[in-house]
Write a protein that binds this DNA or RNA. Structure first.
Length: 729
DNA sequence: GCCGTCTGGGTTTTT
DNA sequence: CCCAGACGGC
């Protein structure tokens, strides 16, 4: 198909490609406005994926660009794959060659192509977060920082945030956390980058940061891609970070055809460096931009949308959208149910019962989902589901590639591919046990440092006792042998040989613990995955960038996942447990990010509700076991914020929706205190009690108004305090 | 160098 | 409560 003019008369002519049929006017505008910057504000369930794929299809079908001249980025590999599949359905094999992937995946591809210009070796490995932390910890210890006092994880987080903002070490300005670790934070960043270079490795952030540097420092390379990408499309724009924004700016300077799709109300990844301002300021950054709002919702009932809208309306700083129900044939549907329970266990039990009922009435389990705030919540459900014999699938739980045995296997392959990968070396040099302990490893590290060689090459120079020396020399020889083998054989045979000859398989076979057989199974599965790849490098890149959000459950199973993982998905019936103060909104979000944190939590709640097509069920528990201790909590403020007209509330805790908190047990050990409903008069019973507060010390309750107490502290006078911050004396 | 015991820390998590 | 990592004894 060729030759569609942008001329209106032609667009309306019968030659119009069939895939434009059925778009609403706004979607049509978003698809057909191919030239210049466009921001598509796409509310939940308004068909943004359809708009994106149709837009790509249209650009190709109209002959505006060839497939490889289009760059389209998504948030996950899964989304990229889904989009590619749809595209191929629409326009056939041409869809195959569209530059479609995650920012990181595309970054890796370009960096490998221009490795020399970017100052990298072409076979660089991409470190996972585990490796990153280990490496940084190593560095911190080398320079004599107490890693107990300064957690490597926190330092890594700071470095990551710098990278998210496109800052190389020399660009980090003083003050901005650079003085973490007694003023050595920035120095650690520098060292960390240096070590990555020596290892022939990059981390996730580098895939964007080093690409940005490449473009900034190498005009011909930048010009090449500016020229190549005639049309750029970005999905989930609200979750892009500053580095991604800068990359887009640079690339779009070529043809100025940038189309970003997103929803500011669904921005939930700021804790990971996402910058909501990207979407909020799009109009400023691209003054000639067209802004299209998609507000026609094709997913949910009126009550679901009404409840969600009422909640999100509490947020300030929105671009503002009003979702409209597309299909009103069934009226507004069921009201969103809000329920209170005594305990987390009761909550789980009740929700599973409700799901069973739905299933009995004919809804497949896979059309229902439980969405939780924090992963520990899944446990109560798992236990109940196992007892009920109901198949379920926990999404984003244990990741295949994060399992110990898989990481070990991958480490063997990494070391074979790149002898300089010291992290991989350290991981497996004594796994299985070969008698290489701290002593030998320290000697190796010292020698490696002195001669600036990688650990594998440092064996000869290291000060070693005879036994470990012999072992290590044999080990190095084996690695060399396998590297030789890698050139001659396929990946599966290679991996099998390596894991057998290294004794790794035997290690698990001899292991009598209960999970050893499972680990061997996982290794077999690992061979299966390997069979899909031609080269070790392809596979290692895949492993580094993949997540197992991709693996779909087999058969009909109930989905359990975090709210974060649910973004972009939809289910007929959605269950949202754990709406309690402290859990949702999460205390840590409030403590660390204050009002902004609260708004992000609220957006998360909005994401949760808008996943539902037909019904939503929100619940809270008065008492919950967290890390083995019973804690109690108040219903989430988000429950109060739901507009009454769209909600049907009930509670097994006395007092309806606003549950009476069980008093004075917060953080104290012991027993569940929920078993008996409290009798009236309890409230006044609090007055006169001696209490303790973390900050203000001891005091006496002088007034009680629900959970709000007025306490006269011995040392600080009267203060109004929430009951849960107090302990009874 | 290995293995048992103790201590501390546990939000979300994709790339 | 449950896991990972540190520490100390063999």
């Amino acid at each position: 198909m060729t030759g569609f003019d942008l001329d209106d008369s032609v667009l309306q002519a019968p030659t119009e490609p069939p895939f434009l049929n059925g778009l609403n006017p706004e979607q049509r505008t978003a698809v057909l406005t191919t030239e210049g910057p466009v921001l598509v504000l796409s509310g939940a369930g308004t068909g943004k994926t359809r708009v994106l794929t149709t837009r790509i299809a249209y650009i190709i079908a109209a002959g505006l660009a060839r497939p490889w001249e289009i760059l389209a980025t998504t948030f996950t590999n899964k989304a990229a794959k889904a989009m590619k599949d749809r595209l191929i359905q629409m326009i056939g094999a041409d869809g195959e060659s569209v530059g479609l992937g995650t920012f990181h995946g595309i970054g890796a591809r370009i960096l490998r192509k221009h490795a020399a210009e970017a100052g990298l070796t072409p076979n660089f490995v991409i470190l996972n977060s585990d490796d990153q932390e280990r490496l940084l910890k190593q560095i911190m210890q080398e320079v004599g920082i107490d890693t107990k006092q300064y957690a490597p994880k926190i330092m890594l987080d700071i470095i990551q945030r710098w990278k998210d903002r496109g800052l190389m070490p020399d660009a980090v300005s003083a003050g901005q956390l650079s003085d973490f670790c007694e003023g050595r934070g920035l120095g650690l960043y520098q060292l960390y980058q240096k070590r990555l270079g020596e290892l022939g490795a990059v981390d996730f952030g580098d895939l964007l940061l080093l690409l940005l540097e490449l473009f900034k420092n190498n005009a011909p390379v930048l010009a090449h891609y500016q020229n190549q990408f005639r049309y750029i499309l970005v999905d989930e724009y609200q979750d892009t970070n500053v580095a991604q924004y800068m990359l887009l700016r640079l690339l779009a300077r070529g043809h100025n055809n940038l189309c970003c799709v997103g929803d500011d109300d669904q921005s939930i990844y700021s804790w990971r460096g996402a910058e909501v301002d990207n979407i909020l300021n799009f109009g400023k950054a691209f003054p000639d931009a067209l802004i299209v709002r998609l507000e026609q919702n094709y997913r949910s009932t009126g009550h679901i949308l009404g409840a969600a809208a009422g909640l999100i309306a509490r947020n300030a700083g929105r671009l503002g959208k009003t979702l409209k129900v597309a299909d009103t044939r069934d009226g507004a549907g069921e009201k969103v149910a809000v329920r209170g329970f005594w305990s987390g266990d009761r909550e789980a039990q009740k929700i599973v019962e409700l799901i069973e009922n739905r299933q009995r009435l004919g809804t497949p389990l896979s059309h229902m989902a439980i969405l939780v705030r924090a992963s520990f919540q899944t446990r109560a459900f798992e236990e109940t589901l196992i007892r009920a014999g109901m198949p379920y699938k926990i999404f984003g739980g244990f990741k295949f590639y994060e399992r110990e045995e898989i990481r070990d296997a991958v480490a063997y392959l990494r070391l074979i591919e790149n002898n300089a990968d010291d992290l991989a070396f350290l991981r497996i040099v004594n796994k299985p046990r070969r008698g290489i302990g701290d002593q030998a490893v320290s000697a190796l590290v010292a020698a490696g440092k002195e001669k600036s060689r990688c650990l594998l090459d440092a064996i000869a120079a290291a000060d070693l006792r005879p036994a470990p020396r012999k072992t290590l020399e044999a080990f190095a020889e084996k690695i060399a042998g396998w590297a030789e083998l890698a050139r001659k054989t396929d990946l599966v045979s290679l991996a099998k040989r390596v894991l057998e000859e290294s004794g790794y398989i035997a290690m698990w076979r001899d292991d009598k613990s209960a999970d050893a057989p499972g680990r061997l199974e996982n290794i077999t599965e690992f061979y299966n995955v390997l069979s899909d790849f031609e080269t070790l490098q392809d596979f290692l890149e895949y492993v580094a960038l993949i997540t197992d959000a991709d693996d779909a459950p087999d058969g009909d199973a109930l989905m359990i996942m975090t709210l974060h993982a649910s973004k972009g998905l939809e289910f007929e019936h959605v269950y949202l447990p754990g709406w309690e103060e402290g859990l949702f909104p999460h205390q840590k979000a409030l403590d660390e990010s204050g009002a902004e944190g609260l708004e992000e939590e609220r957006r998360l709640a909005y994401v949760g509700i808008t996943r539902a097509q037909k019904s939503g069920f929100i619940s809270y528990a008065g008492n919950r076991r967290v890390y083995g201790q019973w804690q109690n909590a108040l219903p989430s403020r988000f429950i109060d914020e739901l507009p009454a007209g769209h909600v049907q509330a009930d509670s097994e805790i006395r007092g309806g929706v606003r549950a009476e908190p069980s008093f004075f047990t917060w953080g104290k050990s012991g027993r569940p205190d929920f078993s008996a409903p409290r009798h009236a008069g309890e409230r006044s019973a609090r007055v006169g009690k001696r209490v303790h507060h973390e900050l203000f010390g001891d005091g006496i309750v002088i007034r009680a108004d629900g959970d709000r107490l007025e306490v006269h502290f011995d040392a600080h006078g009267s203060k109004k305090i929430l009951a849960r911050f107090l302990t009874e004396l």
